[in-house]
Amino acid sequence: MSSDAGTATAARAPGERLPRLASALGSYVGFVPAVLLLGLCFLVPLGIVVCYSFWDTVDYAVVHDWTLGNYRYFFSVGAYVSTMWATLWVAVLSTVIAIGLAFPFAYWLSRYVPRKIRTPLLVLVIVPFWASYLLRVYSWLTILGEKGVVNRFLHWTGLTSHPLGIFLYDRPAVILVLVYLYFPFGALTLYSSIERFDWNQLRAAMDLGASPLQAILRILVPQIRPGIITAVIFVFIPILGEYLTPQIVGGTGGVMIGNLIVNFFQEAEYTRGAAISLLVAGFIVVLLFVFRKSLSTKEAYGA
């Protein structure tokens, strides 16, 4: 570097005396492509879906007459309403089981595993998460199917003489696979909040007379509540929109609301499909709004 170049620029405080307005505008330029992509191809279509859900379909053509007919239709068909409730139930149950399984695991990982091998073990949990989603669902066919591992095993042990269909094509199979799919997410989220916990607090609680279980419930759990809520929400939301899992392992007994949406769109009943989509989206927005405090990144008990 030549020294006079240095002295020439040293006089003006670098980057701070640039004209404010120009630099402010200049700094927003980066948003332009993102606004085009996410605005035009994400927010606008969502807006159109909102409109569609209040428009009418006449002879397979969408007419711009405002109506609540699509919603009325959805709630008038018993099978649809019961599918909606079933979807909620499946989502709640899968979430509870996935998080319930993830908590002891995250506890184990952050408390009993030496620091050096924690990261590899954590990566090991996430690896299946990044294997193709479709494949992870499909792989259960080889286990639960009529010729699957479970039936083969039962046959081999002599417990059954015929392959049983009960493992596949119903709600339990759907819940099992959903738990399988979303467990890593729960484990990852819970681990990252338990990991920051000061274990001396658990020792302090026991020192003050708490049993180990009391210490966990009164000291650990209240402090990681934001992490638990985050995990619950991020497992619950995608399950609401599940299509593939009920489609592959659910059969007719395991239908969820995602399958209804796909059916409507595949039969070009766009306005009715839009109404159901909006129900799901609306529910998600409400959830996110209610729990927005827990989802913000601020420290819970900050100094």
Partner: peptide, 20 residues
């Protein structure tokens, strides 16, 4: 005996106060 059954209490180096 486990800690909670001893007539002993501890002041921890990091204090381990319960932040919640």
């Amino acid at each position: 005996l486990p800690p909670h059954k001893r007539p002993v209490n501890t002041v921890f180096q990091s204090y381990a106060l319960f932040p919640h």
